[in-house]
Amino acid sequence: MRATGDTWPHMAGAAAQPVRRATVATLPAVKMLRRALVALSLAGTIAGLLRMRGKGGVPPQEGGWREVGVPPQ
């Protein structure tokens, strides 16, 4: 049995394109900034969804005050 590219085509492709590894490590500050941006965008999305689902801040507007007479007993 021959181990050629014709016999194992997928292995042949993998051998042709070696795994690419990052050569420069991500800076910790950039990583934190990225996480903060993700958290903020998530919070904004959730808050927006909740605000759209709520009925809004309308105070109760039923009723009112009316002067009444107090007759003698």
Binding site: K55, P60, G63, G64, R66, G69, V70, P72
Partner: peptide, 27 residues
């Protein structure tokens, strides 16, 4: 028996009643 609320209104107190349905606020 002193009917004090009536006499207080005679001296200027204006009693008001809330009309409508008293309910808990929902906001």
């Amino acid at each position: 028996g002193l009917d004090l609320l009536h006499h207080a209104t005679q001296l200027g107190v204006r009693v008001q009643e809330f009309t409508g349905v008293a309910r808990a606020t929902s906001w």
